[in-house]
Design a protein around this nucleic acid. Sequence first.
DNA 1: CATGGGATTGACT
DNA 2: GTCAATCCCATGC
Length: 188
Amino acid sequence: MQQAFYERPVLEVARDLIGCTVRHGLTCGVIVETEAYHHCEPACHAYVGVTPRTATLFGPPGVAYVYRSYGVHAMLNAVCERAGVAAAVLIRALEPVQGVDAMAARRSTDRIGDLCSGPGKLTQALAITLQDNGRALDAAPLVIGPPLADRPGPPIVTGPRIGITKAVDLPWRFAVRGSPFVSRPVPG
DNA sequence: CATGGGATTGACT
DNA sequence: GTCAATCCCATGC
């Protein structure tokens, strides 16, 4: 996926990333759930402006923004829109495709539906860490690629974002309708 | 320099 | 359903 793909309105990118693949090392999965964030709304980390933490978000598109949540989990985002505009798509869930054994070992479970069904789960399953922050998303070891050739475009549903306390009503969450691999069902 | 708050998860009642 | 773990960083003194 080239930089021009990410240098667009973040809501378009969030929708278009559904069905794309995320690969880290030997593990790979298909994106089934995303959320969009933009510095114009208070749920976004970059709402406060440029800081050491948010510098990645204000930088060029097509790179990873990885941060630690609740002191425990790493969260993977794809930086979008032109440099100077902070926006990103949070990758919230994957359908495991390749390296399932490695994912199961890292996650300490064999249940396929529990390997990548959440933003903290998928980074653990794919071994994505804060070391990946700022890394380009079009070259090894961390690559977001186009949808697999043998897969039709899935039906997509939208809804409010999960786990936030501000701007809770914006319908900026996207997911594959009926997918068993999403973190939580989309209302409606 | 001290403090408070998370874009969550898993274990437990 | 409740709740603790745990750490980075933004903010304020």
